[in-house]
Computed example of a mutant assay.
Amino acid sequence: MSRFSFSRRTALILCAASTISSILPAARAQGTAPAYNVGATATGVPFTFLDVKTNTIQGMMVDTVTAVGKAAGFGVNVQQTGFAALVPSLTTGKIDIISAAMLKTPARQQVVDFSDPVYSYGEGLIVKSDDNKAYASLDELKGEVVGAQVGTVFLDMLNKKGIFKEVRSYDSVADMTRDLALGRIRAGLGDQPIIAYQLRQNAFQGVKLAAGYKPVNVGDVCLVVRKGDAEMLARINKAIARIKADGTLAGIVQKWGM
């Protein structure tokens, strides 16, 4: 080997080593952000829903948890989970966070921990399109057959009321509104912003929101974590405060017409 080729090879090696040494600190500084599994439903438009074009879960709460993750320094893997399975999936470790239209209630707080609120709303009363009766309260439906989605606080409301001929439970709001339009039930309860959004999109036929009804079960929508996970809760709450302060959350709410 000539002195020239040896010197050239040595220079190349030193150059490569210099390049690698300059890259490694930056890579270490950047690190790899952890990614958490997030449970969301496919039937909670505009909070969470399945986008058939991309086969992914989208919606206001998906955007919110993504923004929270960005502010907190972690990634999210959003997974389709039935509403009734959200809490069991969280407590058994299948998911790490719930981001859905799940209202904070005392009963749920015994099992899981809720973040600071990201949105607040109450129930909407759904009736047939040709039902023009003014419903000031649920008392005016005494003796009727009514319904709500399984796993919701609205189904508990109806059962606890104890004045109805029958309370039927449904896997989805779409199933409930279908029965309502067919006259199988007199009225149903559901998430007011979800119903209003889907009615604007003509997703439900033959039904409407009772205009005079005033919700009595107004609650907060939050991100949900496992009971006792104080570190995760504090991290999420700090991120929520940040996206509220910089206007990110307000922009998300406006984007989804809520």
Results as ranks from 00 to 15, higher is better:
L209T: 05
D179F: 10
A211I: 04
K70H: 10
V224N: 12
S89M: 06
M232R: 03
K244M: 09
C15W: 04
V52E: 15
C222V: 07
A136S: 14
G69E: 02
A210G: 12
L155V: 05
L14N: 04
A85T: 02
L86G: 02
G219H: 11
G188A: 14
D191E: 07
R28C: 11
V111K: 08
L155A: 15
V87H: 05
G69R: 01
I236C: 08
G44N: 04
M60C: 09
A211T: 08
A187I: 00
G188F: 00
D51W: 04
Q79L: 15
R184K: 15
S137I: 01
R178A: 15
F49Q: 00
I236Q: 05
T64I: 07
Y213D: 12
D246N: 15
A100I: 00
L180R: 00
V112G: 05
V225F: 12
K128D: 05
D175W: 03
A29K: 14
A136Q: 11
Y135A: 09
A40P: 01
A27D: 04
V167T: 13
G143L: 06
Q80N: 14
A72E: 03
E231S: 15
Q149K: 09
D116H: 05
I20W: 09
G39E: 11
I194R: 06
S115T: 02
L24F: 13
K161C: 06
F164T: 02
Q205V: 12
S89Q: 03
I126H: 08
K133S: 13
A148F: 00
I195L: 09
S7G: 07
L86H: 03
F114Q: 01
R242S: 15
C15M: 13
G162E: 06
Y213W: 11
V127K: 04
L86V: 03
N159D: 08
A241T: 10
I57E: 02
M102R: 09
Q198T: 08
A181G: 07
S129H: 08
I57D: 03
T64H: 05
L24S: 10
N159A: 05
L209W: 10
S22Q: 09
Y213T: 08
R3T: 05
P34R: 10
V87I: 15
Y119M: 01
L86Y: 06
F49I: 00
S169W: 02
D63S: 10
V62I: 11
G212H: 14
V146N: 11
N159I: 01
T54A: 12
M258S: 07
T43C: 05
L103C: 04
I13M: 09
K53Y: 12
L209P: 04
P34Y: 09
V45C: 06
V76S: 06
F74Q: 03
W256I: 04
L223P: 07
I243Q: 12
V87R: 00
Q109D: 14
T105V: 03
M258R: 06
S21K: 00
N55P: 03
V150T: 13
L141E: 07
A234D: 13
V68L: 06
